[in-house]
């Protein structure tokens, strides 16, 4: 590395090696119609999905559109509170601002009947026992603490039922489940 010449006034002092550059942005989040519908029912311990008008695929959480085709989705369907782990990650390194006890498991949860997954926590399961295809169920907060918030579900825990075959788990199952395609 090139030698930097520093004036004598600071030459023999301990040099600054890092600087804090925190970033903070404050938004007001106003959900759209689909997210509002979802959140209101989530506050009643119901999980809604959108049904694609193109091929019947079920998208959870509902976003009001099928992004594959760019079409509106205005049909909602109530989902079960059970599903499987499509893929997962075990976190062993703490992240500033996240107060979860280490290690913890983040997983893509695919609800039964859903065609896409969403990211959530898996607990009551040692990390080494977590696996793709493992069946899980929602653990909700106590009823008097339920609100219109993603925090309603504390985590997902194994049900102990037999796993989904690996080839049918998560997005791998997409082609198996393909809707309205006679070649499937």
């Amino acid at each position: 590395m090139t030698e930097i010449q520093i004036p004598s006034s600071i030459r023999n002092l301990e040099q600054v090696q890092s600087v804090r550059t925190p970033i903070r942005m404050e938004y007001t989040f106003t959900p759209g119609v689909a997210a509002q519908t979802y959140l209101r029912e989530f506050g009643n311990k119901k999980i809604l999905g959108n049904v694609s008008p193109v091929d019947g695929a079920i998208l959870v959480p509902p976003r009001g559109a099928d992004p594959r085709y760019g079409v509106l989705c205005d049909e909602f369907v109530e989902m079960p509170h059970t599903g499987h782990v499509g893929s997962f990650c075990v976190t062993n390194v703490p992240i500033p601002g996240r107060e979860l006890e280490l290690p913890y498991i983040s997983a893509w949860i695919f609800l039964d009947g859903a065609d896409i997954g969403f990211l959530n926590l898996v607990a009551e399961c040692p990390p080494e026992e977590c696996r793709i295809g493992m069946r899980v169920e929602a653990v909700w907060k106590p009823d008097d603490e339920i609100g219109m918030t993603a925090e309603n579900i504390l985590y997902w825990r194994p049900t102990g039922e037999p796993d989904l075959p690996f080839d049918e788990a998560g997005v791998r199952g997409w082609h198996v489940r393909k809707h309205g395609d006679s070649d499937a």
Binding site: I4, Q15, V16, S18, V19, R24, T28, G97
Partner: peptide, 29 residues
């Protein structure tokens, strides 16, 4: 309509290197 505050925050620390480090050291002095 539902509405809620949403705060996005990153507690970055940036390493300065020899030039910016010396500049920052100067500020300290």
């Amino acid at each position: 309509r539902l509405s809620a505050p949403l705060v996005l925050e990153y507690p970055f620390t940036r390493t300065t290197g020899p030039v910016i480090g010396a500049f920052m050291t100067g500020l300290r002095e």
